[in-house]
């Protein structure tokens, strides 16, 4: 049974209070490695959002109309990951063929996305919380936008930090983690307004 939460609340909560990076720690690898530059971070954020919306929609349909009727729940991980990998591949080929501009901008990020845990994570959260189709779609969109917001914020801060004098050894991943921690604390402050789980 789908929980009785307004899709709009799910959308806002998945951007802010249940942010994929800041409260669920998903998609950290690319978040840390691609946040050096603001423009690249924007490209990756866009690509993640696009893939998230599509995979959540497709995986929801696959789960309801293939996995459940055929009782393949024990195989769901394999099926989900194959759907994601196939979709990313098709998306890349389609972009290359029809929108070369967009492909030049996002193409290099697409292969990275298959192993981005946020993508599989959103699908698994959607299954565990048994969202209906509209809820899942907005959950996917909100999570993507939230991920994008977080990586852009980190990239912007890191660009500014490049000129600051810092204690020895902190530069690199340690600094990113501490900045992210402060961002996460700020986002926790919103949890009184709306939360999901």
């Amino acid at each position: 049974m789908a929980p009785n939460i307004s899709p709009l609340i799910i959308f806002l909560a998945s951007i802010i209070t249940s942010n994929m990076i800041l409260s669920n720690f998903l998609g950290m690898c690319s978040y840390l490695s691609v946040s050096g530059e603001y423009r690249t971070a924007t490209g990756l954020g866009m690509a993640v959002t696009l893939v998230l919306v599509l995979t959540t929609a497709i995986n929801w349909l696959v789960y309801q109309y293939v996995i459940l009727p055929l009782e393949l729940v024990y195989l769901q991980y394999i099926i989900f990951i194959m759907v994601i990998a196939a979709l990313v591949q098709i998306l890349e080929m389609g972009m290359d063929r029809f929108t070369p501009d967009l492909h030049a901008k996002l193409g290099i990020f697409l292969p990275l996305i298959t192993v981005n845990c946020a993508i599989l994570g959103v699908t698994l959260f959607m299954v565990i919380r048994s969202y209906n189709f509209v809820q899942s779609l907005l959950f996917g969109l909100g999570s993507g936008l939230g991920w994008w917001l977080a990586i852009n914020m980190l990239a912007a801060i890191r660009e500014k930090m490049a000129k600051v004098k810092l204690p020895p050894g902190i530069r690199g991943p340690a600094l990113s983690f501490i900045i992210t921690g402060i961002m996460a604390m700020a986002f926790v402050g919103f949890s009184g307004i709306f939360t999901i789980q």
């Binding site: 669920n24 600094l175 921690g181």
Partner: peptide
Amino acid sequence: PPAAFFIIGSIIW
């Protein structure tokens, strides 16, 4: 969540 970020950041640092 924030504490996890601070702790791992400090260890790596």
